[in-house]
Amino acid sequence: MQKHIFIVYTNAVEGRDDEYNNWYDDQHLNDVLKIPGVVAAQRFALSYKQRLDPPFPWKYAAIYEIETDNLDDVITPLKEWIGTDRMPRSDAMEPHREAYFFHPITTRREA
């Protein structure tokens, strides 16, 4: 099986971080994990220390690990389910987001 990661950058609507994080952590991650081929999910918040200077456009990132030989088998449900009962969307999330699929081009190295 080909491995991929899907990285999604998002923000909460101003003043609604708690509602946004509760929805993302308690519902959305689980909804995405129901898609065949999505094998793991984890969220991240922007660290206070950064190598570069602000502004930083994204406060949150989610990384999904995917194992599939046909990425369309993951992309199609993502497109079809989002905003439905299978994958409700929260209005506490800013509508603009960025999301990209990547596949490894080297072996994993460890220190």
Rank of each mutant, 00 (worst) to 15 (best):
A40L: 04
E14L: 09
D85L: 03
L29E: 02
N11K: 07
Y60W: 15
F102C: 09
Q2F: 03
I82M: 06
N21G: 05
I5G: 03
N30E: 05
Q42P: 01
V39W: 01
M93T: 03
A99Q: 08
D73Y: 03
F102G: 07
R43D: 03
E14Y: 02
Q2K: 11
Y64R: 06
I75L: 13
G37C: 06
Q2V: 04
Y64M: 06
F101Y: 13
E110W: 14
M1V: 12
D53W: 05
D18P: 00
D18Y: 01
D18R: 08
A92L: 06
D26F: 02
Y9D: 09
I5T: 12
S47K: 11
R16F: 02
T106Y: 12
I75V: 15
N70V: 13
A12F: 00
V39C: 08
T10S: 14
G83A: 08
E65N: 08
Q2E: 13
Y60R: 11
G37T: 09
R109H: 14
A61G: 07
E65D: 10
Q50I: 03
A62E: 04
Q2D: 12
Y60N: 14
E80F: 02
D25Q: 05
E14H: 05
Q42Y: 07
S90G: 06
I7D: 01
D17E: 14
D31A: 05
F56G: 05
A40V: 03
R108A: 15
